[in-house]
């Protein structure tokens, strides 16, 4: 008779197989029903009557199963996305939509995020060297103490993306749109930027030595207190861009800034005036627009 109860429950719960919380409900229910059945038998009921009465005591289980499935599926989903401290090297996440995923302290070296929608994901303290974010949506993503060396951001979208104390050494930004992103205290040496647009981007305390921002468009961008030695803005368009130099007791930051090249750049009056005020850069080949 226990088998008959089990079979009955199996059929009842079949559509929800694999949902952990529903499996737990089934186990709880089976244990209750077995006890009721034993008691009814002990009272002298025959098998058929006892079985019928036991089944009748369940009530509207479909409704409850649906409620429980909904209640806990969202919880289970969260747990699944909590890919904490996992080894996901070379993993393939191409094209996935994964909102607010937490890849905390994960090994994601060489992981493939091509075309993925990663809105709101966090990659804090993860190793994503050589990670491929080509065409990925990185809106509201956060990279804190993340190693992104040699990662690729070809045609990625970075809106309000937060990169803090991270390494972007040798990272490639091609046709990338950066809007209101913040790149702070990060190492971008040998990173490549080609054909990118920068709107409201905040580079602060970054190491930008040797970067070529040639021919690219900057509006409302701040390079405050970043190291800009040998940075090139040849042919770039700069509107409302600010360059506050790092505080230095020596002339180092001024000497570094002298090496920044603006040949052929176009800039608005505001940016031009601010740069002129620094005295050190050569603005002879700049067009004011």
């Amino acid at each position: 008779m226990n088998e008959k109860l089990t079979t009955y429950l199996n059929e009842l719960f079949a559509p929800y197989d694999g949902i952990k919380s529903v499996g737990e409900l089934k186990a709880d229910l089976l244990s209750d029903l077995q006890e009721r059945f034993r008691e009814l038998k002990a009272e002298g009921k025959d098998d058929e009557t006892a079985f019928a009465m036991t089944i009748d005591s369940i009530g509207d289980i479909e409704e409850t199963v649906k409620e429980i499935a909904n209640l806990s599926q969202s919880l289970e989903r969260q747990v699944r996305i909590n890919l904490r401290a996992m080894n996901l090297n070379e993993s393939d996440f191409a094209g996935v939509a994964l909102h607010k995923g937490k890849f905390k302290a994960s090994a994601l070296r060489g992981a493939n995020f091509v075309g993925a929608d990663l809105t709101g994901c966090s990659f804090a303290t993860s190793d994503v060297r050589e990670g491929n974010f080509d065409g990925a949506n990185l809106t509201d993503c956060s990279f804190y103490a993340t190693d992104l060396a040699n990662a690729s951001f070809h045609q990625s979208v970075l809106v309000r993306t937060d990169v803090n104390v991270s390494s972007l050494k040798g990272a490639k930004f091609i046709d990338t749109r950066l809007t209101d992103a913040e790149l702070a205290k990060s190492d971008l040496r040998t990173a490549t930027f080609e054909n990118c647009t920068f709107h409201g981007v905040d580079f602060k305390y970054c190491d930008l030595r040797g970067i070529r921002f040639d021919e690219q468009i900057f509006s409302g961008v701040r390079f405050d207190r970043s190291t800009l030695k040998d940075v090139s803005f040849r042919g770039a368009t700069l509107k409302n861009v600010s360059f506050r130099l790092p505080i230095s007791v020596t002339n180092k930051s001024y000497n570094d800034f002298k090496t920044v090249c603006f040949d052929g750049a176009m800039m608005d009056k505001l940016t031009y005036a601010a740069l002129k005020g620094l005295w050190v850069v050569d603005l002879s080949n700049v067009a004011v627009i």
Binding site: D28, D32, T64
Partner: peptide
């Protein structure tokens, strides 16, 4: 679980039968 269902029946003198489904939906 089953103890609670049984107690409800006992205390209500059989006037109210708490179904397993109702109980577990509430418990969860």
């Amino acid at each position: 679980g089953y103890e609670m269902v049984k107690l409800v029946a006992e205390r209500s003198g059989g006037e109210y039968e708490l179904k397993e489904a109702t109980m577990y939906s509430s418990v969860r």
